[in-house]
Amino acid sequence: MMYLQIALICLGCFFFIVGTLGLLRFNDAYSRIHAITKADNLGLGLLVLGLLPSAVNAFQGIKLLLIWLLVLVASATASYLIAHYLKQQQEGDV
């Protein structure tokens, strides 16, 4: 169990690092959106999964899952909104 936890958490961190690298290195905003959603979805998701066995009771576990779920919904929508906004901007410019 412990090793599974460590593996999940490290993998989660890996995605956070990848997301940040993408944010820094990619050239345009669309690719950067792509990068940060990796951290939102996979990074936090794996981290939460890795945390679950350490939760003190079921209530805390549910809260952990809820956090992930909320971030998923929020980040997906925010990404859509900002991409949509960018597209409008570009069409407006042309």
Binding site: A29, R32, I36, V71, I82
Partner: peptide, 11 residues
């Protein structure tokens, strides 16, 4: 976008 990532990292 960076601020958005910060929120998740903060969590």
């Amino acid at each position: 976008l960076a601020a958005q990532l910060f929120g998740t990292t903060g969590v």
